[in-house]
């Protein structure tokens, strides 16, 4: 049976198509890609594994903000028509909203943020997800189909681009109920240029830093190590000392630098879940029992206000 694929992000859509292509022969069906009307080049999905590419049309899709209500209704209608076994959606915040609402409309099973999806020859579909705040990986089996799954970007490798041009993109009009939510305003948010996910060195600070001015101490250490500045959630979300691009963890950015330095960070599981793939982890904390030390290769038990300047000295004298 059919696999239906949807992501507003073209690269993620391409990745999901690779998984759909792998599943389709087992399920004995087609791969249908629903293209997001605002995205460029929907015909490209044919080269990445789609049998059919559909671009939705409706007067209600106009406007600058896509409503989850509309897109889950479109997917719902496609589900009624094609009876897919699996709906794969890109795991962005918006994608998860659309997918979960669709699962509510269908009353079916749904798993979000799957880090692996596998279908065995007996058509048993199993996914893995991070649960318990990052403490554990759960393996979940779909006992009934259809299932709606979301998969984050860069989990599944794309298929190489096929040379054949593929078919025609189908423009399909959908009868949508007038949406009840209305977009009032969209404003760009000020974003800092920091790119944590690709940084080789990340120096992060937590609540151990007592005043906003003291961020300087940590950012100087980051600079001395040619690294980027990261932080814990309270620093970004509660105190709002740093923009959220700096926030590392389960609900922030996941990083895997060569070196991660945690300064004044207690090491709660939700923070660890965002940095434990770092090659080398260093911690500075004045509490010898802080859980961060269990996650560290090297640690200094001490007051960061005394320790960090000493490290700066060492780095200077040894250069």
């Amino acid at each position: 049976m059919t696999v239906l694929v949807f992501s507003e992000q073209v690269p993620t859509g391409n990745e999901l198509l690779a998984k759909a292509r792998e599943m389709a022969p087992v399920l004995g069906g087609q791969v249908i890609a629903l293209a997001y009307p605002g995205s460029p080049g929907p015909e490209g999905f044919y080269k990445r594994g789609a049998d059919r590419v559909i671009v939705p049309e409706s007067p209600h899709l106009a406007g600058d903000v896509p409503l989850a209500e509309n897109y889950s209704a479109i997917l719902h209608q496609l589900c009624e028509e094609h009876k897919p076994s699996v709906v794969l959606v890109g795991s962005t915040r918006w994608g998860k909203e659309v997918a979960a609402r669709l699962a509510g409309l269908l009353g079916c099973g749904c798993a979000l943020d799957c880090t692996s999806v596998s279908l065995d020859a007996g058509k048993t579909l199993t996914v893995e997800r991070l649960v318990l705040g990052g403490n554990a990986m759960s393996s979940e089996q779909m006992a009934k189909l259809p299932a709606v799954l979301t998969v984050p970007a860069k989990v599944i490798p794309c298929l190489p681009e096929a040379a054949s041009p593929g078919g025609q993109v189908e423009r399909k009009s959908f009868e949508l109920a007038p949406p009840r939510a209305a977009s009032l305003k969209v404003t760009p948010r000020e974003v800092s240029g920091v790119k944590l996910d690709t940084a080789q060195v990340v120096v992060s600070m937590g609540r151990g830093v007592k005043a906003k001015e003291d961020i300087r101490i940590i950012s100087e250490l980051a600079r001395a190590l040619n690294g980027e500045l990261g932080c814990t959630r309270p620093i970004a979300a509660d105190l709002k000392w740093l923009p959220k691009e700096h926030w590392v963890g389960l609900s922030g950015t996941k990083v895997k630098p060569r070196v991660y330095v945690a300064v004044g960070i207690s090491g709660q599981i939700q923070h660890i879940a965002g940095m434990r793939d770092s090659a080398l982890i260093v911690a500075i904390n004045k509490d010898k029992d802080a859980p961060i030390f269990k996650a560290a290769d090297f640690g200094i038990i001490g007051d960061l206000y005394k320790v960090v300047p000493e490290i700066m000295n060492q780095l200077k004298t040894c250069k």
Partner: peptide, 26 residues
């Protein structure tokens, strides 16, 4: 529709070398 098939704890294996000396030495 979804059944838990297993739960695997994520175990941290790190070197845990700690320096508790005075700041300059540490």
């Amino acid at each position: 529709a979804v059944r838990l098939a297993g739960l695997r704890g994520i175990v941290m294996k790190r070197r845990n070398v700690l320096f508790a000396d005075e700041p300059p030495e540490a």
